[in-house]
Each structure stands twice: as structure tokens, then as C-alpha cells.
Design a protein around this nucleic acid. Structure first.
Lengths: 191, 191
DNA sequence: GTCTATAATAAGATAGAC
DNA sequence: GTCTATCTTATTATAGAC
């Protein structure tokens, strides 16, 4: 039942939402970009744009969570693993010419006061991402409470740094944050 | 030259941009909310919405910079000063019912690929905010380079935490980041 | 599953009067 | 400085054919 058309729509939509945000992205543009039949959009997504956005957010964040999980567990030392994760994000943003980064931040901010369904999809995505980081830290011997605080700081600083780097068209902040997160985790007490 | 009508438009616009973002905010809504004459909008802002947004961003960030400067220099110890700054932001977001926070983040993300003028206004605002934090750290004895890295991390983590707290309608991340930034600065080497 | 046509609405922007 | 009216062009969404 995993329709290919449906999947194409979600992928095109999530890319456009990352580049432009929610309200700037029209359904026509999603149809054009996805190269899917015009008549299929409301067939697969009866609730229209709202449903597409909620599903696109969920899809994008589940991909990000899987990717983060694999990346962060390639390296044993948590400080090094998190450093490399953020540093790689800085390299990706450079490659892409500073037009991407923080895939759901725009949509989260644009809809947090106007659309509960989309807001909740964003909130769940953010929570899942934090959980992966926290689990890595717990596995590395940090107490549950300290791991939670460190994970929150890593997730928040990475999200903020992506926005700042993208806006300033400069990877420096992301690179500085990567280095600082490494130091922070290295010097953190484990209990 | 400081027209009151002009000022009212900018204030209403910057509030709406914070709540809804750029593309969801219409010129009619700005006129209504600001309680200014309909015919004045294009008189004061010949370039229309783009000009309003660029000026609103500049206004909002210069206020934020002034506010941050005063707040951060009330307390001598930099770790404590930054802790209180972020903690106060968490209290404000609670008071406001999680509908505000990160005043220009949405507009920055929505326009970073489509409007150079607005993007630059956002970039300058973010830079000014970092400068205030960096200056405080330099004054506290940190080397220029370490102060820059710490300031970048504080600015990024605060921005990210505001977005996450707002999206999750929960102040925890902001409070955890406040606590962690305090530890980070306390334990940072000064050179 | 997919099509076209269109409804219904709202957007940003401009012209010309006063 | 401010007004109204209007142009142009989007938008989301639906109806009905195939």
C-alpha cells in the first residue's frame, strides 16, 4: 500500500517546506516539483495541505532520527560522536549553499499557534531526536538526569546553529558549536 | 521624523511576524492590528511588505540587543549572568502561553532563500546579539577566541531552545539549557 | 486513480482623488 | 497623509467526468 505517488508528494513537499517554509509553499508547486498527477493530491491527502505537512514532518524527522542514530553510534566516545555529528551538518550546509538546514523549524514556528496537528508532529519529531542523543549519553555512563540536560543542550544548540549559519551564510557558528559541545561533554560530570 | 504611525506599523508587524511568520501575515492584518490609517502603509513603506519586514527585524533585534546588554551586565559573574538571561526567557515564554519566542527565526528561515534584503537584516541582528554576549565574556577575562566560541554556543542554544520549548509547549529545554550554559562557562578555560 | 475546470477567497500592489 | 477602488495574481479546495 506504500504508493509511490504518495511518497513522491511527501518528499517534494518536505524539501519545499525546508527551503521556503509552510505558507510560501503552494500545492501547485508541490505537484509540479513531485512530478505526480495533479488529480492525486486530494486522493492521497483528503485533508489537503495540513495533512501533507503533518506527514512530511513525521517522515523527515523519522529519517533524521534514523540517520542520527546510525551516525552517533559509529563512534564509541560520546563527545567525539556528537562533535562529528554537528561538524558533518556544517559540511552538508556548505555543500548545499546555505539553503537548507533545520528542516522543520520554519514549519514549527509558522504553525505552532495556528495548527495543532502540525505542531504536534513537530513536537514529536524533536522529542525523538533528543531521545536518540540522550540514549547515547546514558549508554556512555551518564546519569539519566545529566544525560537529559546534555541532550537538550546538544539538540537546541544544533538547531539554533543551523538557523544562524543558514541566515548568515557562514558555517562558523555550526563549527564552533560542534567544538564546544565536544568540550562540554568531555568535561561533564557523569553523575 | 519619528512618525508615530510608522512606529505603530512596525510594532504590530513585528508582533505578527513573531506569532505567525512572514508569509502568513498579511498587510491588511498589519493595518488592522496597528490601528493606523489604511492609506499610510505604502506612504511610509514604498517597498511594501519587504521593507516593513526588514525594518521590523532591525527594530526587534536592536531592542533585543539593548535588553540583553542591560540584563547581562547587571550581574558580574558571566556564568550567572547568562544563566539568568536564559532562565528569564523561559519564564517569559511561560507567561505568554508558548506563543512567542525566537522573534525573527521564522522570518529568517522563510526568506533566507528568497529575499536578500530581509535575510541580511536578520543576519545583522543575530550578529549584534552574539557581539553583546562575546563582549561580556571578553570583559570577564576570556580570550577573544574562546569568548567567540562560547558566545556562539550561547546564542545558538538559546535560539534553538526557544523554538523547541515553544513547539513542545514546555519550558524544560530552555531551563535545562540555562543550567548547562552556566556549567559550561564556569568550567571553560579562559585561554 | 486521475483529469480539467472552476469556485471562493485572499494576497500584494497601484492609481488617482482629496 | 490618507482614502477608496481596483488590478493582477496567487491561494486552497471542490465538482464531476473518465
Amino acid at each position: 500500500m506504500t504508493s509511490e505517488t504518495r511518497q513522491k508528494i511527501l518528499e517534494a513537499a518536505s524539501n519545499l517546506f525546508e527551503l521556503q517554509g509552510y505558507h510560501a509553499t503552494g500545492l501547485n508547486q508541490i505537484v509540479d516539483e513531485s512530478k505526480t498527477p495533479r488529480g492525486s493530491l486530494y486522493y492521497y491527502f483528503p485533508d489537503g495541505k495540513e495533512e501533507i505537512a503533518a506527514e512530511a514532518v513525521t517522515l523527515r524527522m523519522s529519517e533524521a532520527i534514523t540517520h542520527t542514530y546510525q551516525l552517533i553510534n559509529q563512534v564509541d566516545d560520546p563527545a567525539e560522536a556528537i562533535y562529528e555529528m554537528i561538524f558533518k551538518a556544517s559540511q552538508k550546509i556548505i555543500e548545499q549553499g546555505y539553503c537548507t538546514g533545520a528542516p522543520i523549524a520554519a514549519i514549527a514556528l509558522e504553525t505552532s499557534n495556528s495548527n495543532e496537528r502540525i505542531r504536534q508532529a513537530c513536537a514529536q519529531g524533536y522529542e525523538g531526536l533528543q531521545d536518540v542523543i540522550r540514549a547515547k549519553l546514558v549508554l556512555s555512563g551518564f546519569s539519566s538526569q545529566i544525560a537529559a540536560t546534555l541532550a537538550a543542550t546538544v539538540a537546541a544548540s544544533m538547531e539554533g546553529a543551523m538557523i544562524l549559519s543558514r541566515t548568515q551564510q557562514n558555517p562558523d557558528i555550526l563549527i564552533q558549536v560542534a567544538a564546544q559541545m565536544r568540550i562540554m561533554i568531555q568535561t561533564a560530570s557523569k553523575s
